[in-house]
Amino acid sequence: MGAMPYEPPTHTVERSLRATTGAKIVAGVDEVGRGAWAGPVTVCAAITGLRRPPAGLTDSKLLTARQRAELAAELRQWVTAYALGHASPQEIDDLGMTASLRLAAVRALEGLPVRPDAVILDGKHDYLGAPWRVRTVVKGDRSCVAVAAASVIAKVHRDNVMAELAVDHADFGFEANAGYPSPVHKAALEKRGPTPHHRLSWAYLDALPQWRHLKKVRVAGGGATREVEGQLGFDF
C-alpha cells in the first residue's frame, strides 16, 4: 500500500490493560453510521492479540474506498476474531442513538467466540458501560491496532449493506453516500420522501414540509415512538 503520512497504530493501550488489569483478551470496538440519515448503526468488535498488523492499517476515514476494501479483506483473515452488531433505523428511533450504540456493541461483543476481559472503545464517551470493562481512547481508531481493525471492517461492511439497499432505492445514491447527507440524497428525499431505511426521528424531516408528518420522537419514559409534526428531533 506504500508509505503512509501518519503514525501507524500500536498495541500500547492493549499492553497497558494487560499490565494494569490482568486482561488477557482485549477487544477493540468502533462504530460507523452514527451521523447517517438512513441505514443501521454498525459496530465491530475485533480481537487482534499483539501481532504485527497489516501494512497501512489506520482509521478507516483516512483510507480510500479501494484501500479500505483491500485492507478489510486482509484484516478478516488476520484478526484473531471479529463480530459485527447492528441497530436498525427503527431501533434508533425508538431508543435514541446512545442506547442503540450500546445495543449494537453488545451484539458485536456477544458474537465473538470468546468474551473479552476488557474493551477499548473509540472516543471519549463510554456508551457501553457495565458489566464490560471499558477503556475509552480519543482517536483510538488511529492509535490502537484493535480499534483501527474494527474501524475498517465496520466501515466496509456497512458500505456494502448500503450499496445493497441502493438496488431498490436508486435515486438516493446509497452506494455513494452510505445514507449520509449529500445533494443526491437530499433531492431524492424531497421528491420521494423517506424510505423504510430512514431514521424518522431525525431533524432533516423538519426541512421537508411535505414529509414532516412522518416525523417521530421518542415518548418520554418509554421506548415507543409516536408521530408528530413540526417538532425538532433529538440532537445526536
Results as ranks from 00 to 15, higher is better:
His11Arg: 11
Ala203Lys: 11
Lys124Trp: 02
Leu109Lys: 10
Val26Asn: 04
His197Tyr: 14
Ile92Trp: 00
Pro54Ile: 04
Leu109Asp: 09
Leu57Gln: 03
Asp159Phe: 09
Ala188Thr: 13
Ala38Trp: 04
Ala65Glu: 15
Val29Asp: 03
Trp202Phe: 15
Thr20Val: 13
Glu190Asp: 09
Arg66Gln: 14
Ala38Gln: 06
Leu128His: 05
Val138Pro: 10
Pro53Tyr: 00
Ala187Lys: 13
Ala99Lys: 14
Val29Glu: 02
Ala170Cys: 04
Ala3Met: 13
Glu164Thr: 14
Thr136Cys: 14
Thr20Met: 06
Thr21Ala: 08
Lys216Asp: 00
Asp126Gly: 08
Val43Gln: 01
Leu232Ala: 15
Trp211Asn: 06
Val32Lys: 02
Thr21Tyr: 00
Lys124Arg: 15
Pro8Phe: 00
Gly179Leu: 10
Glu190Gln: 13
Glu70Gln: 12
Leu84Ser: 05
Arg18His: 12
Arg212Pro: 01
Ala163Arg: 14
Gly22Met: 03
Leu57Asp: 03
Gln231Pro: 00
Lys191Met: 05
Arg133Thr: 14
Ala224Asn: 08
Ala108His: 05
Asp206Leu: 15
Asp94Met: 09
Pro54Asn: 05
Met4Ala: 15
Glu227Ile: 10
Glu164Ala: 15
His197Phe: 13
Glu91His: 03
Gly230Lys: 10
Arg133Asp: 04
Pro113Glu: 08
Phe234Ile: 09
Thr136Val: 12
Asp168Trp: 00
Leu232Asp: 11
Val219Leu: 11
Cys144Lys: 04
Cys144Met: 02
Pro40Leu: 01
Val43Phe: 01
Gly179Val: 13
Trp211Glu: 05
Asp159Cys: 11
Arg15Val: 12
Gln210Glu: 15
